[in-house]
């Protein structure tokens, strides 16, 4: 399996990030490239700083319900980034929400590749990985 995929995890809940990190590493191996952010601004800053120079394929798992900057606001600011950056990053919304309106809204955002309902499982990571390699 190609381990060149980088994962960026943006979730205000530290425990979620740790769990997701462990699950991803169980699929991609201990050496998997994973960046975690509990503050969305820091995630945006990281992207601004490291892209588009980095040539890695990147999957960004984004939580919706966060204080100060919500997932939607994150997406709005992300939309202002250059197309080159957006080409390199696939965003998946990873939310606890059961509300159809949330999944519909995510589906209608052109920068969002998919809506995943928590809890994240190894199977979901596999299907995301598969999805990425198809494209």
């Amino acid at each position: 399996m190609n381990t060149d995929v980088r994962f960026i995890l943006v979730d205000d809940d530290e425990i979620h990030n740790i769990l997701h990190d462990i699950i991803i590493k169980s699929i991609l191996g201990k050496g998997a490239d994973i960046e975690t952010f509990t503050e969305p601004e820091k995630g945006l800053e990281f992207i601004q700083k490291n892209y588009p120079e980095s040539s890695d394929r990147t999957v960004l798992l984004l939580d919706l319900d966060m204080p100060k900057i919500s997932g939607w606001e994150f997406l709005a600011r992300y939309d202002e980034f250059s197309d080159e950056i957006k080409m390199q990053i696939s965003i998946y919304v990873l939310s606890i929400s059961l509300d159809r309106r949330d999944s519909n809204k995510a589906g209608h955002n052109k920068n969002v590749r998919g809506f995943i309902s928590k809890p994240l499982t190894a199977k979901m990571i596999l299907s995301i990985a598969g999805n990425e390699f198809e494209n």
């Binding site: 809940d13 699950i23 319900d65 606890i96 929400s97 059961l98 928590k118 809890p119």
Partner: peptide, 16 residues
């Protein structure tokens, strides 16, 4: 929503 977040966490972590 607020119940589901930790519950999901518990499910995910216990599965892992």
């Amino acid at each position: 929503h607020n119940l589901r977040a930790p519950v999901a966490n518990i499910i995910g972590a216990s599965t892992a």
